[in-house]
Amino acid sequence: MKGIFLFAGALIFIHTAAAQQHAAQLPVTKNKFVVIAHRGNHVNVPENTVAAVEATIQAGADYAELDLRTTRDGKLVLMHDATVNRTTNGKGKVSDLTLEEIRKLVVSSKDGKTYQVPTFEEALNAARGKVNIYLDFKEADVTTTVQQLKAAGMEKQVVVYLNKETQYAPWQKTAPAIPLMSSVPDEVKTPEQLQLLLGKIHLSILDNVTDSAMLTIARKLHVAIWLDAQTPTEGPAEWDAVLRKGVQGIQSDHPEALVNYLNKNHLRDGIIFR
């Protein structure tokens, strides 16, 4: 994940009541060390599709990372980019197209099969009871998102990645039990600054902490660290580098290979540093 949660002035201006809240508990997983399929498992099928969710389940990953956006008529769909240009045969911004228009598009694929841009509801139905959702909250209404999570019975099977400072308060107010995740802002450079930040902004997961002293603070405050391993050469070298940091999860473009590697090396519980 490359997004940055920009807490401009957050250490001063966050409301006292928010500071008193505790970070929400993470969804239950059968593995202590979690594997996240980036945009769903899209090795053989298109990203952010129902097929990618199903492939995530088949791979044995713990989370499908999915990107949420809103159509012109207020419907929630999966799409990483702001436009449909890269991943479909259409053109234009998601926010400028109706759901009907988006549903007529064909998602680009390697296997020659026909795929549609899925609604959020369809993705949730595919995941329910089988895999957790790591929801990259691009552009959507919090209340509508929570309503659909509850309707699908998925409110305890989701973590929400925040891309903007303004997304924090609505999620805390509307669904305080749903765990939130983001990146440490660039201006937070020391363990002391991180501890102060996490005392004011209650996140359950961070995705960009690699410094050993700052990792110690995260462990002390029971904040999970899930690091990205997606590179053109992603494989054991990248995975081992993450594992040696003693973090709790990896986001991968090759989740099945990663799961197999972890199982083979008895690392599904990670490397524990005491």
Rank of each mutant, 00 (worst) to 15 (best):
Asp141Met: 04
Lys220Trp: 09
Lys93His: 11
Trp226Pro: 08
Met79Tyr: 04
Leu215Trp: 06
Gly270Leu: 07
Ala59Tyr: 06
Val159Ala: 12
Arg72Gln: 13
Met214Thr: 01
Lys130His: 14
Asn260Met: 11
Pro176Glu: 03
Val45Thr: 08
Thr119Tyr: 07
Ile133Lys: 00
Tyr115Glu: 07
Lys2Arg: 10
Gly74Ile: 05
Tyr134Gln: 01
Thr114Ile: 07
Ala10Pro: 02
Leu66Ala: 01
Leu243Ala: 10
Gln116Ile: 03
Asn44Lys: 13
Trp226Cys: 12
Ala224Thr: 05
Pro185Trp: 06
Ile102Ala: 01
Asn125Gly: 11
Thr119Asn: 04
Arg274Asp: 07
Gly92Asn: 11
Ile272Pro: 02
Lys156Ala: 05
Phe7His: 09
Val117Pro: 00
Thr144Gly: 00
Thr231Trp: 15
Asn125Glu: 14
Asn31Trp: 05
Ala59Val: 09
Leu11Ile: 08
Arg268Trp: 05
Val77Lys: 01
Val259Lys: 07
Ile14Gln: 08
Gln116Asn: 10
Trp171Val: 08
Arg274Glu: 07
Phe5Gln: 10
Val106Gln: 13
Thr166Cys: 02
Val35Met: 11
Trp226Tyr: 15
Phe7Ser: 13
Arg39Pro: 06
Ile271Thr: 09
Met181Gly: 01
Leu221Pro: 03
Thr143His: 10
Ala177Cys: 05
Lys150His: 05
Val117Thr: 13
Thr98Asp: 09
Ile102His: 00
Val142Gln: 03
Val35Thr: 14
Thr166Lys: 11
Leu78Ile: 01
Trp239Pro: 13
Val209Ile: 14
Ala213Glu: 10
Gln157Glu: 12
Ala169Ser: 05
Gln248Glu: 15
Lys75Pro: 01
Glu122Gln: 14
Gln195Ser: 11
Leu194Asp: 00
Ala19Phe: 04
Lys164Met: 03
Gly9Arg: 10
Gln251Trp: 04
Leu198Met: 09
His202Asp: 06
Tyr168Met: 04
Gly199Glu: 07
Glu234Tyr: 12
Pro179Arg: 07
Val34Ser: 09
Arg244Val: 05
Asp253Asn: 15
Leu78Lys: 00
Asp136Ser: 04
Leu221Ala: 03
Gly9Asp: 09
Thr49Met: 01
Asp67Trp: 00
Phe120Leu: 15
Glu155Tyr: 08
Leu196Asn: 07
Val107His: 01
Ile205Met: 13
Asn89Val: 03
Arg128Ser: 08
Gly235Arg: 13
Lys91Ile: 05
Val242Cys: 13
Phe5Thr: 10
Gln248Ala: 12
Leu124Asn: 00
